Every structure is written in structure tokens, then in C-alpha cells.
Amino acid sequence: MSRSIVFDSPFLLGFEHTRALAERAAKAAAEAYPPYNVEDRGEGRLRITLAVAGFTPDQLQVTVEDRQLVVAGRRDDERKAEDAYLHRGIAARGFLRSFVLADGMIVEGASLEHGLLHIDLARPEPETSVKTIPIRSAG
């Protein structure tokens, strides 16, 4: 992946973490399976819905690590060899889909319903804090 010229500016020092987040987001956007929706539910709440028909809750895993939400689907490799398909349009492979979360985003929960995995996220209002900085005199 090519590096962003914006983050290579000498005026933006210490933004390596932001560059890494942008690169992870670009990589995640290039993935195409499984299809998903991101829904704005108002008041700082989001819902990610992934189409995971054929997966059971035991075959799905939702984790958050270092502000990255990762959804993994694992298929059992014990497929019947005698199954003969005339057409196979339903994907039967595992997947790994990731989303980069903004600071403060929390995952409230996940549910599987009718082949759709719903992941609910929220961004609580940050607490306002005012810090007074003492001014020292030099003499």
C-alpha cells in the first residue's frame, strides 16, 4: 500500500498512529465478503449488520482490540464429500471483517437474527473537564 503524502509532511509530527489507522481502514474497505450495512441510529449510536446466512453463533466471533472491531466467521471443514451442487452461489467460506473504531466508541452487544449479525455501537458523550494550568513566574 502506498503511503499518504499528507502524513509525511514535516509539519505533522507524531501522527504515525493516525497514518496506521488510515491504512487499516483502507485495507478493511477493500474487503467484499460478507456484505454489510452501517446504520446511524441517532444519538451517537450505530448498528453494523453483516449478512452471515448459514453461520451459527458458535461459528462467529466478535472482538475489539486496539480500537479495531473484528468479526470472524469460521466454517467447519467437515463438508460432506458426497454433496453435488449443480450451482453453488452461497459462499461457504470463512471470513475476517474489520472496522476501525473512533476514540470513545464502545460495542454494546451483538445478536444473530435470520442470518444477519447485528453489532450495536455507541459513542457516549465525553465528560467535559476543565483543567487550570498554574503559571509560574521566572523570578
Rank of each mutant, 00 (worst) to 15 (best):
A92I: 00
P126E: 08
R41C: 12
V38Q: 15
L112G: 02
S129Q: 15
F55E: 06
I106H: 01
I135N: 01
M1L: 12
K131L: 14
A138R: 12
A25T: 13
P35Q: 13
E108Y: 01
M1S: 14
N37C: 02
G115D: 05
F95H: 07
S2R: 15
E43L: 06
L101K: 03
L116D: 06
S111M: 05
A25I: 02
L50H: 08
R136V: 11
A138C: 03
A92D: 13
L50A: 12
H118Y: 13
E65T: 14
T18D: 14
E31A: 14
F11Y: 13
L117Y: 11
T56E: 08
S137Y: 04
R88N: 09
R24D: 07
L101T: 04
G89D: 11
I48C: 03
A22C: 09
R19K: 08
A91L: 06
R88I: 03
L21A: 08
P10L: 10
R79F: 13
D76C: 03
D77L: 15
A30G: 09
L50R: 05
G73Q: 06
A22N: 04
R93F: 09
K131H: 09
L13V: 11
E113N: 15
A102R: 07
A122H: 12
L13W: 00
P57Q: 03
E23T: 03
L96G: 01
G73S: 10
E65V: 11
A92T: 08
K27F: 05
V130Q: 13
V71A: 02
A102C: 00
A72C: 02
E78P: 00
I133T: 14
K131A: 13
H118A: 15
A84Y: 07
L112H: 04
S111W: 05
E82K: 10
R93D: 09
R93L: 06
G115S: 10
